[in-house]
């Protein structure tokens, strides 16, 4: 089967790849581009472990076809930090011990970044509903939500005790 040529911006860099028409963006990221930070937990859009930001919109990359990436700008977990400097969301996840196994963590961090890009001052309830598409089986979400709220405060420039 002929492959399609796709050109997209991934984590700020222009990227070109060939993909089969049925390949999902998640498969392309992991198996073609070599970015394995996005995880497959379900391949049906239910767990959020493959969350990426596509043209400013949070999506499950397992529900997007690779060919649909043509001309888009995509941010994956690998593009959240700036060089050696962690994004405040990443730093707060570490400080709050908001991860145990760490498998859902990339998706949660990408989803949190997308939340705070859109709503810098979410309530706890808004954060919980926004992240309801990201399953975490280890933490019970307590420390995740604390990390999200703390990261939001830091990004707003507030000092939190």
């Amino acid at each position: 089967m002929a492959k399609s040529y796709v050109s997209a911006t991934i984590n700020g860099e222009s990227s070109e790849f060939l993909c089969e028409t049925q390949q999902t963006l998640l498969d392309v990221l992991r198996d073609v581009v070599g970015l394995t930070g996005s995880k497959e937990g379900c391949a049906s859009g239910d767990c959020g472990a493959c969350s990426v930001i596509m043209d400013g919109r949070l999506v499950c990359s397992c529900l997007v076809l690779g060919v649909e990436a043509e001309g888009t700008s995509i941010t994956t977990i690998e593009g959240i930090a700036t060089g050696e400097k962690l994004h405040p969301v990443q730093q707060k996840f570490l400080e709050h011990a908001a991860l145990q196994c760490g498998f859902c963590t990339p998706g949660l961090i990408v989803a949190t970044k997308a939340l705070l890009d859109e709503n810098p001052n979410p309530t706890e309830t808004e954060a919980r509903y926004w992240l309801a598409g990201n399953l975490c089986r280890c933490t019970g979400y307590d420390k995740v939500i604390r990390a999200v709220m703390d990261a939001a405060a830091e990004l707003r420039g507030e000092t939190v005790g």
Binding site: G37, Q90, I109
Partner: peptide
């Protein structure tokens, strides 16, 4: 005390290698 875990940065940056990440 509550230090940051040794494998933490790998897990918040997507670098941690799970079984399906190996080729």
């Amino acid at each position: 005390t509550r230090p940051i875990r040794p494998d933490g940065v790998d897990k918040v940056t997507g670098r941690a290698v799970f079984a399906a990440d190996t080729r």
